[in-house]
Every structure is written in C-alpha cells, then in structure tokens.
Design a protein around this nucleic acid. Structure first.
Length: 297
DNA sequence: ACAACTACCTGGTCGC
DNA sequence: TGCGACCAGGTAGTTG
C-alpha cells in the first residue's frame, strides 16, 4: 500500500521523468479515476492538453504537478493525484500494452514515454485543482499535515496536539490532520519501535513517549524511503508495495506468529478500527481497560 | 468541535 | 470445479 515512502519514490520519478514536459493528449478510461474533478472529464482534458507540467510536489500521500501555459506562465492550477490503495503512476513507452486497470493516459509533445494512471481498486484519483496563493499547496489539501520528514515539522506542536486529543494513539497516527503520510503499515511499525500499544490513550502519553513515537515514525519512514529508493527502476515509476523490501524490513506488520525481532515473542494480530493491527504482546502490552478508549457509555 | 463509523472498490484466497 | 464469504485500507462524508 502506498504510504509516504512509496509516494515519495513516485514523486521523485515524476520529477525526473515528467516535470518540464508538455501534454499532447489526455485519455480518461474510467470516470471514477477523476471523480474528484467535479467539472467532468472534458474539463479535465481541456485543463491539461497543450500545457506543461512543471514540477512534482507531495504533501502526505498527495502529489501535485503545477500546470503552466505553453509560454511558461503558471495557470495557478495543478494536476493533483492520490494513489489510494492500489494506484500506480507509470512512465512507459507508448508501445507498451495497456494495463488491465489503466484509468488514464497522458501523452507528451516530445513523443516520448507516456504517463499512465493504473488503479485496480479505484480508490485513487486525479483532478485539476486550484493552487494556493503564490503557487503553494492546493487549498483542498491544506488540512493534510506536513510529514515528519519535513524540516518544518513542528515536534512540540505535534506533541501538544497529540496529548490534547482524547483518542487512541494509533488513530492519531493515522489522522492525516495531525501527521501526514502514515498509514496502517508504518503506524504499526512505529508503535512497535516505541513499545506502545495502539490503543494507548493519547492524553496519557508522556512527553518522552511521544518523542520515542515520533522517532519511531521518522526512522521507519526514512528507512523505508531508503529501501524504496534503491529498488527504484528509473524507467518505471513504481508504487508496487508488495515487492522488494517489504518482507525483509517489517518487524510486525503481517508477521503473525513470527517472533518479535526484539524479544522473540510471537507477534499477535488484533482487529482495530476495522483494520488489522500487528504488535508484540510483551513489548507492547495492551493498556488497562480503564483507559479513555474503554470508558463506559 | 471533536470523535468514530461507514461507503467506496476489486482481485485473491479460503472453506465447503 | 464452483461459489460465496471474507480480507486488504485511505479518504470523504456522515453520524453521534
């Protein structure tokens, strides 16, 4: 599943292979892929055809590519992409056969490689959105918090916000308004590193625990990004989370009954927020039932 | 205001 | 072999 490291790998691929090129044509193969472009497919195509994609930016799991007029003047708009659960942005030769789940295709005036949006489960999507003032983050993405790898990430503000909340710590990690880019997989990995159970109430966490958690998040995202970077094939902007580094590097996610890398106890799986959560029963003891998460109605 | 739940979606896997 | 149930989970929108 594409979380921050995977999306950042895609961003780098787009920056290298797509930025600076001018769109020759756009084909929308599935209306759901552009459902968030409310004006419809014709408008989406019109907004991009003949214009230049100037760069590739990311906030959390969102990507956007600013759009410029043929002369280079900014349009104040950007192609915004979210990969959802299964989305891929692929840079491929025009001769490459269509993927089964091809949702949109962009060709370029240089007649080079195409950009394709492929998405089996159609949770992802594309849209052309207005940029903020000074060509900054699209306002529609403004609620997404900056991510912990960003220099501007405010540790103290995050700690304060976390401890102000009355919720469980895993829910908070997945809340994109608090911290950007963390999904189910890296949330479990970060919690394991910080030796915290995901059901721990955030308002009871100590400052030191929050600091450990944040360090866990940063380390796991950073390591995943480094791994993703090494497996990146420069001819193929890949988002296939299944391949490569995943199994080698995850301590708990998907590791049911395998030994905890720290203490050897078999990893457990729990249903949590209608998701699977993996943790070590010894390193990450469940909080007592008196916590905020279990208070009586 | 804030917290929590649900719809959305499809391919693979499992049990019978 | 077929078929239905279930699972994966990010986000927006709704409900409480």
């Amino acid at each position: 599943m594409p979380e921050l490291p995977e999306v950042e790998v895609v961003r780098r691929g787009l920056e290298q292979w797509v930025a600076g090129r001018t769109v020759a044509s756009v084909q929308v193969h599935h209306p759901r892929a552009i459902r968030r472009h409310l004006e419809g497919a014709d408008s989406f195509v019109q907004a991009l055809t003949g214009r230049t994609l100037t760069a590739a930016h990311r906030r959390g799991k969102y990507l956007w590519l600013p759009v410029a007029e043929p002369g280079g003047a900014p349009t104040g708009r950007a192609l915004v992409a979210h990969l959802g659960m299964s989305g891929q942005l692929l840079v491929e030769k025009p001769s490459a056969p269509d993927e089964t789940h091809l949702r949109a295709r962009f060709t370029f005036t240089d007649r080079g490689r195409e950009l394709r949006f492929v998405d089996q489960r159609t949770f992802g999507g594309l849209a052309v959105e207005e940029l903020g003032a000074g060509d900054s983050v699209p306002p529609r993405l403004a609620h997404i918090a900056i991510d912990p790898l960003d220099e501007a990430f405010d540790v103290d503000a995050f700690s304060a916000a976390l401890r102000r909340r009355r919720t469980e710590v895993k829910r908070a990690l997945l809340d994109q308004t608090l911290i950007g880019g963390v999904g189910n997989i890296y949330a479990d990995e970060a919690l394991w590193r910080a030796r915290l159970h995901g059901a721990r109430p955030t308002d009871k966490l100590t400052r030191a625990q929050v600091a450990d958690l944040l360090e866990g998040v940063r380390d796991v995202l950073g390591e995943a990004l480094a791994q993703g970077g090494t497996s990146f094939d420069s001819l193929y902007v890949d988002v296939n989370g299944q391949s490569g580094y995943f199994s080698r590097f995850l301590a708990v996610y998907g590791q049911l009954d395998r030994p905890c890398p720290r203490c050897g106890t078999p990893i457990r799986r729990e249903s949590f927020m209608n998701r699977s959560s993996y943790s070590c029963p010894v390193c990450q003891p469940r909080p007592r039932a008196s916590s905020a998460s279990a208070r009586r109605p």
